[in-house]
Design a protein around this nucleic acid. Structure first.
Ligand SMILES: [Mn+2]
Ligand SMILES: [Mn+2]
Ligand SMILES: [Mn+2]
Ligand SMILES: [Mn+2]
Lengths: 218, 218
DNA sequence: ATTATCTTTTTGGCATACCAAAATTAATAA
DNA sequence: TTATTAATTTTGGTATGCCAAAAAGATAAT
């Protein structure tokens, strides 16, 4: 199996398994990688052979220790590059993901560690996602989705789970960027849409958008 | 044909054709890319189909206008990355080539131009090779090989044509780095080896090494 | 419990990138 | 010019990554 193929599968399985706890089903992998389900079945069988995952037919996949190691390594590369592109090379948080998708496959430990060191060994990338350290260790956090926030409480925006340009541009428009402080004014009973205050302005957030915004109580 | 495959062929043909003048034969391409000659024949046929090269059977290849454009683009990416790795990220001139071989395939104009701009749009890479500008234009120079240098004359080291770590480390040991001033003391009639003065020390250069050092008369 | 509806797997096939060995063609030396 | 050698091409074949359609399995709904 080509290294790039392996890396794309493992990264995807990692990202879909939320901290490597849940078992991942084939369809989600197929969607994420824009592959035919038949292709995914084959791919998973091979990854099982290679001992990167434990794959149970018609049930799902989870990463083994070695698969997890490789997955965390590529997630690290991806997020370090995103941060470097944003902080050092002047790219927007909506632009970095696409470029990092290519750069992440360049495997050179010294290079990534050098970039990390220039950045001051950051713990979060431009979307608020945690960056594993060289050993694959991730800072654990008590973040919640905005959709789980409570009325009257104050929060800080810590990240996003949707990296699309349209979504990120939409957030920017309302100043909902990483680090922004917000206050939940009301949550509509009718449709669960949220009205919050950000930089003294009222913003109405749909339930769908609230699912994609990560916050921390302050 | 995969983009990476195309790029590797075109880059190689460009590098072997010395400024795109000479016709390149298959064997050299096979050597450079570590491919079987049979594979190269196939590859060249496809590149001809794609109109990137003109390929005459049993004779050789040369780049078309569009092939030349792509080749210069990837040569630019390679050399900008080499320069960025050396100047901004602290890698040695013997380390940058291997990493740039991977980075060169990341195709993002804005990224390369940003790196170039940070570097002050350099004209030469760490090995003294010229960097094409965004339009593919290359500064022309009057450099010669050290093997063509004349006794008693003064020269400045401008580049190398061998990028191997062993060779570059050897040069470093004798202070024969880019920019170094040298004076040709003698050229042995017997074996054409060169004795030169560099930083007040005598250095003996084999004809083979002299072929790989590029200098300019000063 | 039995459909109906997803999801996954199997099957058969296609395209790309390779290589080894044999056959051909070109270049060189005798 | 005719061997001899070297370079190139042809041929037959492997491995990988992918897909469409059909078959099988699992889940959910009645
Ligand atoms: Mn990303
Ligand atoms: Mn990210
Ligand atoms: Mn190089
Ligand atoms: Mn170089």
């Amino acid at each position: 199996m080509r290294q790039e193929t392996i890396e794309n599968y493992l990264k995807t399985i990692y990202n879909l398994s939320s901290n490597n706890t849940a078992v991942v089903n084939n369809q989600k992998i197929a969607d994420r990688l824009s592959l035919n389900p038949a292709t995914v079945t084959e791919g998973l069988r091979k990854l099982h052979e290679l001992k990167y995952i434990v794959y149970e037919k018609s049930y799902g996949s989870r990463l083994t220790a070695s698969g997890s190691k490789l997955a965390l390594d590529i997630v690290r590369r991806h997020r370090i590059w995103e941060t470097y592109l944003a902080k050092e090379l002047g790219f927007g948080w909506d632009e970095v993901h696409a470029i990092a998708e290519e750069l992440e496959h360049v495997n050179n430990v010294k290079l990534i560690n050098k970039l990390a060191s220039i950045l001051g060994n950051p713990i979060y990338d431009p979307h608020g996602d945690p960056i594993p350290d060289e050993k694959g260790k991730i800072q654990k956090s008590n973040f919640i989705k905005l959709s789980e926030a409570k009325v009257k409480f104050y929060y800080k925006v810590m990240g996003v789970t949707d990296h699309s340009t349209t979504f990120l541009k939409y957030l920017e428009k309302h100043n909902l960027i990483i680090g922004a402080s917000i206050n939940i004014k009301t949550i509509e009973d009718f449709d669960n849409s949220i009205v919050l205050i950000c930089q003294k302005k009222e913003v109405n957030i749909s339930p769908k958008a609230a699912e994609c915004i990560i916050v921390q109580s302050i």
